[in-house]
Simulated assay, not measured.
Amino acid sequence: MVIDREEAEAVRPLTLAWVNRQLEVGERVAGTEVLHGGITAEMRRLTIGTQDRSTRDLVLRTFVDPHFVEHAEDMLNREADALALLAGTDVPAPGPVAVDATATHCEYPSLLMTHVPGRTVLDDEGLEARVPLLARQLVAIHALRPAVRPHVYKAWTTADAVVPPLGADPVAWAAAVDVIREPAPRYEGRFLHRDFHPGNVLFDVSPPSTTGPHITGVVDWVQNSWGPADLDVAHCSSNLALLHGPAWGLRFAEAYEEAGGVLAATGGERLYWRLLDALPFAAGAEWVARPWRRAGRAELTTRAVEERLDAYVAALLDALG
């Protein structure tokens, strides 16, 4: 394989030296490719040339944003621990190779892991077939019982921090904020991915296929936590609502229960968790929309995402309030 000099230089020198020390004798980094779609970190696929002239792929996660560098030690170690746990399960995920969570050896905190085949699929087409797959995969994640529980989940907003998007229904948003102002409902704890959504799930959708699409991997485990299954369902629901429309956000919870998942007993409890996840998107609409546009969803402007969020909050209050 010919080494692409510009691609090889994309990995910083100290980090490249650290990666090389994790390789088998006779292996080398033969090429790199920037992986798009991530929000919090730089992601690169590294093509590794082996001694027998074949190749294998690894993935390098690097935190460079100062905010995430500050929290990298906890997040990267948490992900490495989760990947080690998942290696002995039926949940398809990368395997951990090495972690430098404090940037002792690398320019920035980094995690090296195995590569999982497949790609993210964010198109409207085929969504009806993918939603049940997402639901079944999340049920399988929640069935895991780690010997050591991860951190208890953290809420991503508070009632006083919520700022409705421009043009949002003030009455609906005031009611929604009042819901999350109440104490959190009691729940039965589960192992959570905590950032489970279509952008962190890889599919094989290559034709021809007689069985249809199937999930090949679940990635980005830096937020894994212990908490209610409703919270993971809420996060995927919010993302589906913003990507594909509010009806799909409502549909996902149904699909989760159809797959055998168990949610909170009352509508009020379900509404709490669903809104606790949805309302923070008001402050981050552009943050989530930008990678979606890069992935081909050009119509998902910040304004379009805010309008869908407003409609989704209203739909939740109508359905569960």
Results as ranks from 00 to 15, higher is better:
Leu320Trp: 12
Gly227Lys: 14
Gly26Val: 13
Pro109Phe: 13
Arg303Leu: 14
Pro213Trp: 10
Leu242Gly: 15
Ser206Phe: 02
Val233Asp: 03
Glu269Gln: 03
Ala98Trp: 02
His244Arg: 03
Glu258Met: 04
Val19Gln: 08
Leu58Asn: 04
Glu307Phe: 04
Pro92Gly: 05
Glu79Val: 03
Ala253Trp: 01
Arg45Asp: 00
Phe63Tyr: 15
Gly268Cys: 00
Glu299Asn: 03
Ala247Trp: 01
Trp221Gln: 05
Leu263Asn: 11
Glu125Pro: 01
Val201Trp: 07
Pro146Met: 11
Ile180Val: 12
Gln223Asn: 15
His197Ile: 12
Thr102Val: 00
Ala155Tyr: 14
Asp204Tyr: 07
Met43Ile: 15
Val19Thr: 11
Ala298Arg: 10
Ser209Tyr: 12
Val29Gly: 06
Glu258Arg: 11
Ala304Ser: 15
Arg61Val: 08
Asp204Gln: 13
Ala311Lys: 11
Ala304Gln: 05
Asp90Asn: 04
Gly261Gln: 01
Leu243Phe: 02
Ala255Leu: 01
Leu242Pro: 04
Leu133Trp: 05
Phe63Val: 02
Leu144Phe: 10
Leu250Glu: 00
Val59Ile: 09
Thr89Glu: 00
Trp226Ile: 09
Trp156Gly: 06
Ser54Asn: 05
Gly88Asp: 08
Val97Pro: 06
Glu299Asp: 15
Val162Ala: 06
Ala295Phe: 09
Arg293Tyr: 07
Asp230Phe: 07
Thr55Leu: 00
Asn239Gly: 04
Leu316Pro: 09
Pro117Arg: 02
Val313Asp: 11
Tyr272His: 11
Trp273Val: 01
Leu166Gln: 08
Pro165Val: 06
Ala147His: 09
Ala161Thr: 15
Glu27Tyr: 10
Val97Trp: 05
Arg297Trp: 06
Arg181Gln: 11
Arg45Phe: 01
Pro198Thr: 05
Thr114Ile: 09
Ser225Met: 10
Ala82Cys: 13
Gly261His: 02
Ile39Thr: 15
Ala283Cys: 12
Pro291His: 08
Asp123Arg: 13
Val25Tyr: 08
Arg21Ile: 05
Ile39Tyr: 10
Thr157Asp: 08
Gly88Glu: 06
Ala93Ser: 01
Leu166Lys: 02
Thr216Ser: 04
Ala129Trp: 05
Arg190Trp: 03
Asp310Gln: 11
Leu250Cys: 00
Ala282Cys: 06
Asp65Cys: 08
Ala155Gln: 14
Ala319Ile: 04
Leu46Met: 14
Trp156Glu: 12
Arg186Trp: 08
Leu317Lys: 15
Thr210Leu: 13
Phe191Leu: 05
Asp90Gly: 13
Ala82Glu: 08
Val171Thr: 11
Thr55Gly: 00
Pro94Glu: 07
His142Met: 13
Val262Gly: 00
Met75Gly: 00
Ala278Asp: 02
Pro146Val: 10
Ala161Leu: 08
Glu6Met: 06
Leu83Gln: 06
Pro213Met: 07
Gly296Asn: 10
Asp160Ile: 04
Thr62Glu: 10
